[in-house]
Design a protein around this nucleic acid. Structure first.
Lengths: 247, 247
DNA sequence: CGCGAAACTTGACCTGTATCAATGTCGCAC
DNA sequence: GTGCGACATTGATACAGGTCAAGTTTCGCG
């Protein structure tokens, strides 16, 4: 694990630590094949041959907002936070990328947000031009990409409702339920939801302070709606949480 | 103006009141040609021949969230509010559509939000299948559509920052500045920003109450940052408003 | 012109969440 | 083990914005 990119700016990120087979990055392949909504298996196999694996230590930066978007990332392991900053330092996290997610698919010439690793993160990267050329050879893929972007927009609108019109308790419950659903596609369904991101990250995602997130979790735990466990929570009263999280 | 669709459910919306020339809806053509970021002039001319004009009175519904998305709309005049509701009636407006904007471009099979007319609204409508077939004949158009969706996503993320991390005063200033920029593309640049939507609509867009919007506008007016005029505001202290609205 | 309804503004007060300040807990280096 | 730093929790207090309740303005309409 010593060869991973230690911080932003390293020119030659190491291959994935688990990329040992002659055919490429084994784990990358798993992730590529298993999850992404925008691409199908055959396309991903083809795409994989174009990939450059790279690994990032916790708290290191994948890319910054407004920087030229030269690379498309596929997260194969770990969690990435995506955020925008206000000039005075206030931060809004606009999403978390989980294994299987792509970053930089918008094909805009600059990144719309900054991204950094929450945990150790492994990725497959594609030079933007290569990815773009690949897409151009497959018109139906472009359509899928558009549907995918539209779906992301819909999720963004969910988040607007959450940020604009929901209470702290509803925000936290929504966050936990939707994160549970997302983990289900990575690690399988479970009432134990891993929370590799810190309380500050959750707060910045939900438009709250760290103290309010902490108090709300404590209260839900005291009322037996959930149990706080190391690095996550175990959901106990699913009907109640569901009710708080209603679309 | 008597022939416009009076309310949701009318089967045969009237043609645009100004659609009098033999070639089709003149004003529709103007709007189609002048603004939309996703399509170019030639494509729009072609598309126009497929359009069905329709007109909506204030407060009538264009479509509801989760309803099958059978139609693509191009707003040619007026303002439409796009919103989601929580089960208890709380409302989050996710955007306002101005002349030139398209609704239903996501090509998802259901609408992701509800839409109703704020002012009298005229539209050109395209059966979804026709629009979809049209797009399929032009691969490069699909790419443009994807870029367009990505841009919308970026705007949605701006709104997340606004909702999650900005004060009431910053929210109001941001709203006015960005609306000014959008009107500039419709009616030309001006320091007078029309506000055809009511205070409640602005509040539901900014995640505030009607009283807070009113107080904030009053305060900005008292401090000579702007002047409240019938159906809008005149921006006086642009540097100050700009500072409050910083990206 | 005058009425009535809807939209908007204003004021007084309240509350949810932020802020400020300890205190507690965990993991890790030595 | 012990100490240290990062992160999380808890408590006391403050305040931005919400809520409730009058007014006031606007405007359509007879």
């Amino acid at each position: 694990m010593m060869s991973c990119e230690q911080a932003r700016g390293a020119d030659t990120p190491s291959p994935c630590p688990h990329a040992r087979s002659r055919e490429g990055c084994v784990d990358c392949k798993v992730r590529l094949l298993s999850i992404c909504a925008a691409l199908d298996a055959g396309e991903l196999c083809e795409l994989e041959s174009l990939s450059h694996p790279a690994c990032f230590e916790p708290r290191t930066t994948l890319f910054l907002q407004d920087e030229p978007a030269e690379i498309v990332y596929n997260v194969t392991d770990g969690v990435v936070r995506l955020y925008r900053l206000l000039p005075d330092g206030r931060r809004q996290i606009v999403g978390f990328a989980l294994p299987g997610d792509f970053l930089g698919l918008s094909m805009a010439d600059r990144f719309g947000f900054s991204a950094d690793a929450v945990t150790r993160v492994t990725t497959c990267r594609f030079p933007r031009e290569v990815f773009s050329a690949f897409v151009d050879t497959k018109p139906h893929l472009l359509r899928r990409l558009h549907e995918f972007a539209s779906h992301e927009l819909s999720l963004a609108q969910d988040q607007m409702v959450l940020l604009g019109r929901r209470t702290a308790e509803e925000k936290v419950a929504s966050f936990l339920m939707s994160l549970r659903d997302r983990w289900a596609r990575v690690t399988g369904a479970s009432v134990t939801v891993p929370l590799p991101m810190g309380r500050q990250d959750i707060a910045d995602f939900l438009g709250l302070t760290i103290e309010t997130v902490s108090r709300t979790l404590t209260r839900l735990a005291r009322e037996r709606a959930l149990l706080i466990v190391p690095d996550g929570v175990r959901l106990l009263d699913l009907p109640r949480l569901e009710r708080l999280a209603v679309a």
